[in-house]
Simulated scan of single mutants.
Amino acid sequence: MEAGRTPHDPALNALVGALGVRDPDFRAWWAGHQVRGPRQLTKTYLHPVVGALTLDVQQFSVDIHPDQQLTAYTTEPGSSSHEALRFLLQWSAADTGRGTESPA
């Protein structure tokens, strides 16, 4: 990721070059762009109301703030986790609607 942000950094380029010369695995990983690590994964959470939720997690870099990331959680449409999230959305909307009416 750092090489993508600063492609003309001489120290970083020297390090990549040295690692490529010394380590054939690194050379293959670098060529295949596998040195970044996984950017998409699946996580399962145990929610106290709906139980297990399996979510796909994607992380995106924020170019103007390299130390920050945007993380998006999604579900497979029609899955039990998708239905559980829809339920929680409706449940929380109903809960926030209570007690907000102005007195008569």
Rank of each mutant, 00 (worst) to 15 (best):
Q69H: 06
A28T: 11
L55A: 03
G51Y: 00
L12N: 08
A11V: 09
A104C: 11
T42F: 14
D63K: 10
V49C: 01
A3K: 02
H47S: 03
D25S: 07
H8D: 13
A14H: 06
F60R: 03
V35C: 04
P77S: 03
G97K: 07
Q90H: 11
M1G: 09
A28N: 03
S81V: 00
D56F: 08
R36P: 14
L19R: 02
R39Y: 05
W29M: 10
H33M: 02
A31K: 14
D9V: 01
L19S: 04
L46S: 04
G37I: 01
E83S: 13
G20E: 03
L12T: 01
G4C: 01
F26W: 07
H47D: 08
A31M: 12
F87L: 07
M1A: 06
A72D: 13
H65L: 11
G97D: 03
S61P: 02
G20T: 06
I64N: 04
D95M: 13
A72V: 15
G17M: 00
Q34L: 10
A104F: 11
P10D: 03
R27M: 13
A94V: 00
S81T: 00
G99K: 02
L55I: 06
Q69Y: 10
D67N: 11
G37T: 00
G37E: 02
L70H: 04
A104Q: 13
R27C: 05
L53Y: 01
D9N: 09
D9M: 04
A11W: 10
T74A: 12
V62D: 02
H8G: 13
G20H: 12
R39T: 02
P24E: 00
H65T: 05
G97A: 15
R5G: 07
A52D: 13
F60L: 03
S102F: 12
D67C: 06
L12C: 02
P77R: 02
Q34R: 14
G4M: 07
G32R: 13
T75I: 10
A104E: 12
R22F: 05
T74P: 11
P7C: 00
R36T: 10
T42H: 15
S102T: 14
M1H: 05
V49G: 08
V57I: 09
L15H: 15
A94N: 00
G78K: 05
D67K: 08
T71P: 02
E76P: 03
Q58S: 13
V57Y: 13
H33C: 04
A94M: 03
V62Q: 06
S102W: 12
P38G: 12
L19N: 01
K43I: 14
R5M: 15
G51T: 01
E2P: 11
W30H: 09
L88H: 02
M1T: 00
D23N: 15
E2R: 11
A11G: 12
G78H: 05
T54P: 14
A18L: 05
T75H: 06
D95F: 02
V35L: 11
R27K: 12
L15W: 13
R27Q: 12
H47I: 04
A52R: 06
